[in-house]
Amino acid sequence: MTGVGIIGGGRWARVIASVLPQVWAGPVTVCSPGHPAAWDDRPTGWRLASLSDVFADPAIGHVIIARRARDHAPTVLAALAAGKAVLVEKPFCLTRAEADAILAAGGDCQTGLVFLYAPNQARFRAAVLSAGRPERIEVDWADPAAEWRYGAAKRHDEALNVVQNMLPHVWSLVRPLLDGPLNLAAASTANGGQSVTLRLHGAADVVVRLHSNAAGRVRRLSVSGQGLDAVLDFAREPGDAVLNGAVLDVATGHSSPLAAELSAFLYGPRHPLGQVAKAVEALDLTLQAMPRIRAQQAAALRQGEGLAALREVALGGVAGDGIPSDRAAVARWLGMDEKAADFDAAWRAATGGDGRAHNPATGN
């Protein structure tokens, strides 16, 4: 029996650690390169190691990576080079160059898309596809500013735009309902890019509405077509579903999607869309959308609106590639004078008053 390694020390890494014993009784090694003390309260018998020790240990065959998004690609590449089977949380990388490097590396690499394994989603998909062909799909997805999930406060990575953060999950809801890929038709923003509406074209027309810092949690999937009208509302799992006016049971047999995903990673069978070679479609959609989103964010900022967007860009880079931008680069992107009083005031407000951007997300 080979061991399992968990790399990361933030909330989601610890959620994974809490669920893993449901499906795995073997040795576990944990590692948080940026915050080793995060694992001071690790379960008895679990080993704490450095990143290099995890990669060098031949007894660790499976590695689960849940770090900050900007750290995912180099960690994945190092794990694959060490011959590990990899499960990396979404987004598995932030640029096409990173994705191409991961794909070229070969090896066994999955990305964390728990809804591919959710029993309520599987039952809903099966019922929808047996009733007719989807022609229009709508997804409403919102996260509140503060939320308590899995026994801890949920915080998003402020360096990520809502599309970078949420679209992989949305793609995993929509893509199994369709034959063939999706392409971006339009992207519009509000609230400095904290709210984004995407219109996608493929085998069906898809409308995706994403919101961060919303009033409440929203998870709603609607599917329509000739003789087909279905809705799954799963803000509270397993949720409530209706198909052509009749209540659809999505609760019977429901269990932890994360436990199912971890079990599939360790033992199989795995969902084919979880392989990075397929999940790169979600990244490509994101990369199609981001230039339009950034342009709209810049226009709002030049009008003195959307300080959250300025903080996002200061943390994540104007290209959305996970590389922090400095003040001068952001000013050039906006077409503003770095020394101007209005830019200085906005920059200080967005970065906490000291002119430097600090990301509170603890995914290391």
Rank of each mutant, 00 (worst) to 15 (best):
289 A>L: 03
191 N>Y: 13
60 I>D: 01
160 L>V: 10
153 A>R: 14
233 D>K: 11
142 A>L: 09
130 S>H: 11
272 P>E: 12
148 W>G: 04
308 A>E: 14
17 A>R: 01
1 M>Q: 14
137 I>E: 03
155 R>Y: 11
8 G>P: 02
140 D>T: 13
27 P>E: 10
49 A>H: 06
333 W>M: 15
60 I>A: 00
23 V>I: 12
359 N>S: 03
67 R>M: 15
48 L>E: 11
98 E>A: 12
254 H>A: 13
70 R>I: 01
12 W>Y: 14
151 G>S: 02
51 L>D: 10
133 R>I: 15
251 A>M: 05
182 L>D: 04
108 D>Y: 08
325 S>D: 09
70 R>M: 00
37 A>Y: 07
159 A>L: 00
305 E>C: 10
361 A>L: 14
301 L>E: 02
265 F>E: 04
32 S>I: 02
238 P>N: 01
288 Q>N: 09
267 Y>T: 14
261 E>D: 05
132 G>P: 02
304 G>D: 08
283 L>C: 07
182 L>A: 03
67 R>P: 00
26 G>N: 09
246 A>C: 09
41 D>M: 07
105 A>E: 06
355 G>I: 10
81 A>G: 15
58 P>D: 04
46 W>C: 02
361 A>R: 03
266 L>F: 01
150 Y>E: 15
105 A>T: 06
244 N>L: 12
103 L>R: 00
80 L>A: 00
361 A>M: 14
